[in-house]
Design a protein around this nucleic acid. Structure first.
Length: 271
DNA sequence: TCCTATGTTGTATG
DNA sequence: ACATACAACATAGG
């Protein structure tokens, strides 16, 4: 589920606990989401500390407790955060539960276990996994020049696969990539290096537009996107393009199922 | 039974 | 070293 806007939504699920202290930590230490982590250190590190802030960058979240305890969460494919009241009984996929002094429980759920939990205590500064993150797509540092340079470096890969690369497009996932290419009228199979200037210009504009739209519609309260987006049509059997009324195509590109509108998104090799 | 799933990563190959 | 492609991870649901 989680891409840029969904991650922002899940970040906010824990913010009601800001200012509250952790009084207990329950976790399933043998689960894959804790791979490489010292869960005892996580337990003892967080206990007694108050949640200070909650941040998101792309698909990565960071929750800071006390003055030096960092909890990183990545939601993988099926991860979610929730907040529950004191009487809630954690279920089998609730792999991390922080019991707060208010009685609230901060829950991290992940049935498929593709997510990840990170913990670090840093006396000063940020953990390495929160440093040197690529510029957010809506930040000033995310320039057209920067994007174009990356497209050139990945010139022989389909643009769909390139948009999924987190080191350049943090937060973009499968549905956003399809939405962006559809709005840009670019065929997802086009090699990144074959895009002409008009196409890269459209791509840059629509990329930022989809990020803004998604954060506004999904990131705030998870509203249903309007039918004018590709979003509501792409997984439906017999779905049609809202622009042309023609049937949408679904086919794997770059290892992921991709949906596009063949007439609308120029299919041939450009130029 | 088989196929799919809004993600990343390790490994093989060029 | 760099770019590219793909299986593997673990579980649920259609």
């Amino acid at each position: 589920m989680p891409e840029l806007a969904e991650v922002e939504y899940y970040r906010k699920q824990w913010t009601p606990a800001i200012g509250q202290r952790v009084v207990g930590v329950e976790l399933h230490a043998d689960k894959r989401i804790f791979r490489g982590q010292d869960t005892d250190a996580l337990r003892s590190g967080l206990k007694g500390q108050a949640l200070q802030r909650a941040e998101a960058h792309g698909k990565q979240m960071a929750f800071v407790f006390g003055d030096c305890h960092w909890l990183g969460l990545h939601l993988g494919m099926t991860g979610k955060t929730r907040i529950e009241s004191a009487d809630y009984e954690p279920g089998k996929h609730d792999h991390l539960v922080l019991r707060m002094q208010s009685g609230d429980q901060l829950i991290f759920i992940d049935p498929r276990l593709f997510g990840r939990v990170l913990y670090a205590a840093c006396k000063s500064g940020e953990p390495d996994w929160w440093q040197g993150l690529p510029p957010g797509i809506l930040s000033d540092a995310f320039t057209r020049e920067r994007m174009n340079a990356f497209l050139k470096r990945r010139a022989r890969s389909p643009i769909k696969a390139v948009l999924l690369m987190q080191e350049a497009f943090p937060g973009v996932g499968n549905w956003m990539a399809d939405e962006i290419l559809w709005r840009s009228r670019i065929c997802p199979a086009t090699r990144a290096g074959d895009l002409d200037q008009q196409q890269t210009k459209a791509l840059y504009r629509r990329l930022r537009e989809v990020c803004r739209d998604a954060l506004r519609v999904i990131g705030t309260d998870w509203s249903r996107p309007p039918d004018s987006w590709l979003f509501n049509h792409r997984w439906k059997d017999g779905g049609v393009c809202p622009k042309t009324g023609c049937p949408l195509i679904r086919e794997p590109i770059g290892g992921r199922t991709t949906c596009w509108s063949p007439k609308w998104q120029n299919s041939g090799a450009p130029k």
